[in-house]
């Protein structure tokens, strides 16, 4: 961690957040908020949290800003002038100041920032750092804890993405749109006849394969470098988002249809949970990957953990990819799945 960067960046972050709440033009606010997540990514890299930074880079820069822009696109951009509502402002400032006071009081009680001897850095985390290499043979401790020691959390985290996409898809899709969507399954759409600018089309067309290749690298190389299923999945989803911005949603659906998307959403989580279930059937506890060595005796229990983690990451990536794309298509086309942003 580098304290000089940290102080400068955090000051910028606070200013940026404040301004994005302050300005009256929603589009501007959303774009400033994009800068907020860029800076947050740098803050986390500065503190050595590379996986979190990668996730923030993928989510903040790639996806959540686009969600905001899509919402502003389909609603209104202007903020209506409100009368100065004294009681609400007074009430909420009292609450905020009270909360701030409470939190500030407790700060004096914390171990200093960056103290290597604090309880957080010693109790459980120390065990992971010292034993993960022996028990799983995965150098990236974040991946091994994410996909093995606390795999149950990660399974439900993937479940959250599934639930969110299902909720958004169900609620935005109108009943007439639903019938049209089912009819249009896998029909042939010409990729030549599009209205978008040539530059965007060509540039995005060139970018997309490289992005997908890079995403696959991130997924499978998560054991040795920052990254893993979630980050790779978001980048894969972002490549599809890019494609559907360069052409339109219908043309992407010709290759990757809605039906398929909903299925792959569920299949991703099912791969994860299914591996856990196989372990249970083979006589271990749920998600105890070492039980898989009964199925493949040539792998020891450590090797089977290593491999099972890889497959789990693939499942996560599948769900996250289709989840991000499903959320984008629903939000950007307001549930019509035709033109998009």
């Amino acid at each position: 961690m580098i304290w000089q960067f940290d102080i400068l960046l955090l000051t910028l972050v606070v200013v940026c957040g404040f301004v994005s709440l302050w300005i009256k033009d929603l589009m501007g606010a959303v774009i400033v908020f994009g800068a907020y997540s860029f800076l947050m990514c740098l803050v986390w890299t500065g503190m050595g949290a590379v996986d979190v930074a990668f996730t923030e880079a993928a989510v903040g820069a790639g996806v959540s800003t686009i969600f905001f822009i899509a919402t502003v696109f389909h609603t209104s951009r202007t903020i209506r002038y409100n009368k100065w509502d004294l009681s609400t402002k007074f009430f909420s400032s009292i609450i905020c100041i009270l909360m701030g006071f409470f939190l500030m009081v407790a700060i004096g009680d914390f171990p200093a920032w960056g103290d290597a001897l604090s309880p957080v850095n010693n109790n459980v985390a120390k065990y992971y750092l010292e034993n993960s290499m022996e028990e799983t043979k995965v150098p990236n401790v974040v991946t091994s804890v994410l996909a093995d020691y606390r795999a149950f959390d990660t399974m439900f985290e993937t479940g959250v993405v599934f639930v969110a996409s299902l909720v958004i898809f169900t609620l935005l899709l109108q009943s007439d749109g639903r019938k049209k969507l089912m009819k249009s399954a896998f029909q042939k759409v010409s990729f030549l006849n599009v209205s978008e600018s040539l530059i965007i089309r060509k540039a995005c067309g060139l970018m997309v394969p490289f992005m997908q290749l890079f995403a696959l690298y991130v997924v499978v190389h998560g054991h040795y470098s920052p990254g893993g299923g979630f980050q790779g999945g978001v980048i894969l989803g972002a490549s599809l988002i890019l494609l559907s911005m360069a052409y339109d949603i219908k043309k992407v659906f010709a290759r990757f249809h809605m039906k398929f998307m909903i299925k792959s959403l569920a299949v991703g989580v099912l791969i994860f949970a299914g591996i856990g279930l196989i372990c249970l059937i083979l006589g271990g506890n749920f998600l105890d990957y070492s039980a898989l060595s009964k199925l493949f005796p040539s792998m020891g229990s450590i090797k089977s953990r290593y491999n099972a983690m890889l497959w789990v990451e693939v499942g996560v990536a599948l769900t996250v990819m289709s989840g991000m794309f499903a959320i984008y298509t629903s939000l950007s086309s307001n549930g019509k799945f035709e033109e998009g942003l």
């Binding site: 880079a57 993928a58 686009i66 995005c204 890079f214």
Partner: peptide, 15 residues
């Protein structure tokens, strides 16, 4: 991370 960042940060601009 830098590559990922570079690949993704222009999506918002295109949007």
């Amino acid at each position: 991370i830098a590559i990922g960042y570079g690949l993704l940060n222009f999506i918002a601009s295109i949007g």
